[in-house]
Amino acid sequence: DELPTSQYLNEVSKKLREKGISLACLDIESDCYVLITVPSSDIDEIKKLAQEVGYRIQDSF
Rank of each mutant, 00 (worst) to 15 (best):
Leu35Thr: 14
Arg56Ile: 00
Ala50Cys: 00
Val53Thr: 07
Ala24Phe: 03
Ser40Lys: 13
Ser22Ala: 11
Cys25Gly: 10
Pro4Tyr: 03
Val12Met: 12
Leu49Val: 10
Phe61Asp: 04
Glu52Gln: 10
Lys14Arg: 06
Leu26Thr: 02
Asp44Val: 15
Gln58Arg: 01
Lys47Asn: 03
Ala50Thr: 03
Thr37Lys: 15
Ser6Gln: 08
Ser60Trp: 01
Leu23His: 01
Gly54Tyr: 09
Ser41Leu: 15
Arg17Gly: 10
Ile43Trp: 09
Pro4Gln: 11
Lys48Leu: 08
Lys14Phe: 05
Asp59His: 06
Ala24Trp: 00
Ile21Ala: 07
Cys32Glu: 11
Leu49Thr: 14
Glu52Ile: 13
Glu11Arg: 00
Ser41Thr: 15
Arg56Phe: 05
Lys47Gly: 02
Pro39Asp: 15
Val12Trp: 01
Lys15Leu: 06
Gln51Tyr: 13
Ser60Val: 00
Ser30His: 11
Ser6Trp: 06
Glu29Val: 12
Ala24Gly: 15
Gln51Pro: 01
Leu35Cys: 05
Glu11Asp: 01
Glu11Leu: 03
Tyr33Thr: 09
Lys48Asn: 11
Val12Asn: 01
Pro4Asn: 12
Val53Cys: 03
Asp27Tyr: 12
Asp1His: 07
Asp42Phe: 12
Ile21Thr: 02
Ala24Gln: 04
Val53Gly: 00
Lys19Asp: 11
Glu18Trp: 00
Val34His: 05
Gly54Trp: 07
Lys14Val: 07
Ser40Glu: 15
Ser60Cys: 11
Ile43Leu: 09
Tyr8Leu: 09
Lys47Cys: 04
Ser60Gln: 13
Pro4Arg: 02
Ser6Asn: 07
Ser40Gly: 15
Ala24Asn: 07
Val38Trp: 03
Ser40Met: 13
Phe61Trp: 13
Glu29Met: 13
Lys14Met: 09
Cys32Trp: 09
Ile21Asn: 06
Leu16Thr: 04
Ala50Ile: 02
Leu16Cys: 05
Glu52Gly: 07
Ser40Thr: 15
Ser30Val: 08
Asp44Ile: 14
Lys47Ala: 02
Ser22Asn: 06
Ser30Gln: 11
Val34Ile: 06
Leu9Cys: 00
Ile36Glu: 12
Leu23Ala: 04
Leu3Val: 00
Tyr8Gln: 08
Gln58Phe: 01
Lys48His: 09
Ser41Pro: 13
Cys25Glu: 15
Asn10Ala: 03
Tyr8Ser: 04
Gln58His: 03
Ser22Arg: 06
Glu18Leu: 00
Ile43Met: 06
Leu35Val: 09
Leu49Cys: 08
Ser41Lys: 15
Lys48Tyr: 11
Gly54Thr: 06
Ala50Phe: 02
Glu52Tyr: 06
Lys48Val: 09
Ala24Pro: 01
Asp31Ser: 12
Val53Glu: 11
Ala50Tyr: 02
Lys15Gly: 05
Thr5Gly: 01
Ile43Thr: 04
Asp27Val: 08
Ala50Trp: 00
Val38Met: 12
Arg17Glu: 14
Ile36Trp: 02
Gly20Tyr: 07
Pro4Asp: 12
Ser13Ala: 04
Asn10Phe: 01
Asp59Gly: 05
Asp31Asn: 08
Ser30Lys: 11
Phe61Thr: 05
Ser30Leu: 11
Leu9Lys: 01
Pro39Leu: 14
Glu52Phe: 08
Ile57Gly: 01
Asp1Thr: 08
Ile21Leu: 13
Leu16Glu: 10
Tyr8Asn: 04
Leu23Arg: 04
Glu52Asp: 10
Tyr33Phe: 13
Thr5Val: 09
Lys14Trp: 11
Gly54Glu: 09
Asp31Phe: 13
Ile43Gly: 06
Gln7Ile: 00
